[in-house]
């Protein structure tokens, strides 16, 4: 538990109750209920447009639900006044990395430490170096994003998110923009985080990662959770016809 500026404590769990979201006439999420427990690794799978990224963006505070209740670490994100409390307490890793191109790896990681957590430059660099070491990027501190491979950029992005000591980590297709041979270096970092007990919600197309690392796999289809369970249940023995269809297509490719 960490405390927010106004003294509320932030946990590591997520509760979604009857969450809906539409973009214009398109209903992206229809009445979603989902719980993520402290230390749990939940992997969201499903076709493009099934709503999994939107769900993740709602949990991380980048979008707001149209209706329903969203508690992230105990913060009621559906209350506009309180939603900003979550900022800086959850980590978000994006498909396109979104590193700050004008800052080197060290600068990317220290920015929030210095400006949000008000650390001195020395303190911030010590914390950042630890985070960069955790993702195996301690030797590339001086490199700018454009001088790093996609996999390296994504590892710096993970370090940047980790450095502020988040309660929950969200991964939005973190390996989808990577060349196939670079996927492994990122998933292995994600796996080690999971082993260390980090609460994680992961949107991915990497079924290998889901199989080996997820505590629970959630299959989304057309804005609803069609099926969920352990990786064995959902990936090996899917019950829902849409899950069967989706997995058949994924494994075919």
């Amino acid at each position: 538990m960490t405390a927010t500026a106004n003294g509320a404590t932030i946990g590591s769990n997520v509760q979604l109750r009857a969450v809906t979201k539409a973009f214009g006439a398109v209903e992206v999420l229809k009445n979603i209920d989902l719980e993520v427990e402290d230390g749990e690794v939940v992997v969201l799978i499903g076709a493009s447009g099934s709503g999994k990224s939107t769900l993740l963006r709602i949990m991380s505070g980048l979008e707001t639900a149209d209706s329903g209740q969203v508690f992230v670490g105990g913060i009621p994100m559906h209350e506009p006044k309180r939603a900003p409390e979550i900022r800086g307490h959850v980590g978000m890793v994006f498909q396109q990395f979104n590193l700050f191109p004008h800052l080197n790896a060290m600068g990317n990681v220290t920015l929030a430490l210095r400006k949000v957590l008000k650390m001195s430059t020395n303190e911030a660099e010590a914390v950042a170096l630890k985070a960069l070491t955790r993702v195996g990027m301690q030797d590339r501190c001086e490199n700018y994003p454009s001088q790093l491979s996609g996999g390296q950029q994504q590892r710096v992005a993970i370090a940047r998110a980790l450095a502020v000591n988040p309660r929950i980590m969200f991964f939005d297709e973190a390996t989808s923009a990577l060349d196939p041979e670079l996927v492994g270096e990122v998933t292995s970092v994600m796996r080690s985080l999971a082993t260390e007990g980090m609460t994680m919600v992961v949107v991915t197309h990497e079924m290998g990662f889901a199989q080996r690392t997820a505590d629970r796999v959630v299959f989304m289809d057309d804005g609803v959770i069609a099926e969920q369970g352990t990786p064995e249940q959902v990936l090996q023995n899917p019950q829902h016809p849409r899950t069967q269809q989706f997995l058949a297509r994924v494994f075919e490719a």
């Binding site: 991380s60 505070g61 980048l62 900022r87 800086g88 307490h89 959850v90 980590g91 978000m92 994006f94 396109q96 979104n98 590193l99 700050f100 920015l111 929030a112 400006k115 949000v116 957590l117 992005a157 940047r160 998110a161 502020v164």
Partner: peptide, 22 residues
């Protein structure tokens, strides 16, 4: 890109800090 603002926001930077530093 607005994704730069989103990255800054999830890190906890205020709107003003995001403008100034990102």
């Amino acid at each position: 890109p607005s994704a730069q603002r989103e990255a800054a926001q999830t890190l906890g930077l205020s709107a003003m800090q995001t403008f100034r530093f990102v």
